[in-house]
């Protein structure tokens, strides 16, 4: 860890102060725009408050107790976790495969580099319209294709069927999101010195060996970064839900953010919504911290 640290021994005061100057702008912004709102959210989570009236009532941990025994909330959490698991596996696998292919000097590599980043650029409105058309129960493309293939009995209203709704939403989400992982992974792959590959090839290593022994160890920090971003991005899925299922049918595609907004705006339980937000934040924090831990562990071995 101490590799490349300036002035490890005998730090002078002036030196240290200089070092803090590097941090100063970021620190000021952080202190103003993060600490205060979070403190406010924490404070309000202890009150019963409608977000409008000048009065609020202290309820202590009451809101948190309500959160803990709210089954719908934990269902929404599980729904988001389900999409996250799918995304961690399939979305990132796709991103990695594509990044590995494009990383080689391939004909048309530049073209693919550009094209794969298009889905994240697209507006959510367009994505909603197109996928609603694909999944539609009556005139949908998917049902049309299935019946041409002679699988007409599988046809259904994909987004209205509780068995398929959430997976269908997850597929849209993964399709939309793989471009992010793709460019981060590609940047990481490009960072690996080509000589290392050549040296390994000289030693007679096969493609798979090179991948295992050269690429993977060097890419671990990047993998973890992509994994953390996938978890954070997917757990907070929101606009896609609104434009496809609205959380239905029933509660089958409800996710944490839709629940928090329902509490805050729908039923005007502001303090309760703050409590939900905090619980959600802590879950995300634990999830990402354990991933970072894992990365440190992997780096050492």
């Amino acid at each position: 860890m101490s590799r490349g640290v300036i002035g490890n021994n005998g730090m002078r005061v002036k030196d240290v102060l200089q070092n803090y100057v590097f941090l100063l702008p970021a620190l000021i912004l952080f202190a103003t725009f993060y600490i205060y709102p979070v403190y406010k959210v924490f404070e309000l989570s202890l009150f019963e408050y409608d977000g409008i009236s000048p009065h609020k009532y202290f309820v202590g941990m009451g809101n948190f107790a309500d959160v803990m025994c709210n089954k719908i909330w934990w269902t929404s959490m599980w729904n988001a976790a389900y999409i996250t698991i799918l995304a961690l596996v399939f979305q990132n696998a796709l991103a990695l495969v594509l990044a590995l292919i494009v990383d080689k000097d391939l004909k048309g590599g530049k073209f693919y580099r550009v094209v794969f980043y298009l889905p994240p650029v697209l507006s959510g409105i367009v994505i909603g319209l197109i996928w609603n058309w694909i999944y539609d129960g009556n005139y949908g493309l998917l049902n049309h294709w299935l019946s041409t293939l002679g699988l007409g009995n599988l046809a259904r209203s994909w987004l209205a069927d509780p068995k398929t709704a959430i997976t269908c939403v997850a597929i849209i989400h993964m399709w939309r999101g793989f471009g992010w992982g793709f460019i981060i992974l590609l940047a990481g792959l490009q960072n690996i010195p080509r000589e290392l590959y050549e040296a390994a090839r000289m030693d007679g290593a096969s493609g798979l060996d090179i991948f295992r022994r050269v690429t993977v160890p060097l890419m671990i920090p990047v993998f973890i970064l992509v994994a953390v971003l996938t978890v954070l991005g997917t757990m907070q899925i929101y606009d896609l839900i609104v434009s496809t299922t609205g959380g239905g049918p029933g509660y089958h595609t409800e996710v944490p953010i839709t629940r928090i907004l329902a509490a805050m705006i729908g039923s005007s339980r502001f303090g309760y919504a703050c409590a939900l937000g905090l619980v959600f934040g802590v879950v995300l924090l634990v999830a990402s911290m354990s991933q970072l831990r894992l990365s440190r562990h992997l780096k050492q071995t």
């Binding site: 952080f30 725009f33 993060y34 205060y36 709102p37 979070v38 406010k40 959210v41 309000l44 977000g51 953390v228 954070l232 907070q236 953010i257 928090i260 907004l261 805050m264 502001f270 919504a273 703050c274 939900l276 937000g277 905090l278 934040g281 802590v282 995300l284 924090l285 990402s288 911290m289």
Partner: peptide, 13 residues
């Protein structure tokens, strides 16, 4: 800060 995004903090902001 990256990991705890708080939707409720809009009004506090």
């Amino acid at each position: 800060t990256m990991m705890i995004p708080i939707p409720g903090s809009f009004i506090a902001l």
